[in-house]
Amino acid sequence: MQEHLYTVFRRELAMKTKYVVAKAFVDVKPVLKKALPLLKGKIGIVTTVQFLHLMKEAKQFLDEHNINSTILGQVLGCNIEVTKNSDADSFLYIGDGLFHPKGLIVQKERHVIMADPLSNKVRELTKEEIKRFENIRYKGQVTFHSSKNIGVLVSLKPGQEHLVAGLTLKKKYPDKNFYILVFDDLNFASLEDFPFIECYVNTMCQRISYDDVNKLPRAVVDYSDLQ
């Protein structure tokens, strides 16, 4: 039944997709110069597709300033696979926004320095921010294990669709009742229609588990924390 449901689900999602790379043509050196005092030990450089073409230039600049660095590559959405086998002491994220740096903190639990070539600003995630992420994760896990009725958030969006992951939870936790809640765009208000749900498992974008936790009517645990 699960395999049939998954096949139908995938067929409904099938569509032609065209990817367009939008490069950011900026000078990366000024922001790297600002970041130099924060770069200690082995540095793993990560970025998004907009700045990927600047990585060789960035590493060359760091080499010239005696910074031990390695280009790890592109982080994509919730995927930070390029950091999986890294022995870096810290990560240097070249890009804008907090989403990817937060993902590095949550999944890798290492020091993260953010260098934004667009705003020419540098900052490092503070211990307080790291502690907040840890508390959110802990609360979600504790609530999940003490709850009976679980709502599993599943996306219809290609690249974020993890229906099978949600369905396998029943086998792993047979004493719990799982309700699969499928969305294209997650409507937080609609979750109020399921007052019996005690905790959510998020199989969608990880941003929901950490950035949007206050929008959910119940505690949430990310699926990755249950593996």
Rank of each mutant, 00 (worst) to 15 (best):
A165P: 03
F99Y: 15
P37N: 07
T168F: 12
V152Y: 00
K34V: 01
K176F: 02
K176T: 07
K148F: 08
D27G: 00
C78M: 02
V201I: 10
L76K: 13
Q141E: 12
F183T: 00
I150T: 06
I150W: 04
V8H: 14
L226Y: 03
K148L: 11
V46R: 07
D175M: 13
M55R: 09
E109K: 15
S69D: 08
T143Y: 04
L156W: 05
T83G: 06
A14Q: 11
K33L: 07
I80N: 06
S147P: 11
G151C: 08
Y223H: 08
E57S: 10
K18D: 05
L163W: 00
I197K: 08
A165E: 14
H65V: 02
L72W: 13
V46W: 15
K157H: 03
P117N: 01
T48R: 04
L104S: 07
T48H: 08
H100K: 08
Y210S: 11
L226Q: 10
K148M: 08
P158K: 01
L62T: 11
C199E: 06
S209N: 09
E129A: 09
I113Q: 10
T17V: 12
A115F: 11
S90V: 09
L76S: 14
L125Y: 14
L32K: 03
N177P: 06
S224R: 12
A14H: 07
F194M: 11
R218V: 03
K29M: 05
Y173N: 09
Q60F: 11
L72H: 10
A24P: 07
T126K: 15
I67Y: 14
A58N: 10
V182C: 00
V220K: 03
E161Y: 01
L54R: 10
V106H: 13
K157Q: 03
L169A: 07
T203I: 05
A88W: 09
V82I: 12
S119M: 12
L163C: 01
F133N: 12
K171L: 05
L186G: 00
V152D: 00
R137T: 12
D225C: 01
T168G: 12
Y200R: 02
M15T: 08
S147N: 06
K40R: 13
L156V: 01
E3T: 10
F91Q: 13
H4P: 02
A35Y: 04
K18G: 02
I80Y: 04
F9C: 02
K59R: 14
T143M: 09
V213T: 08
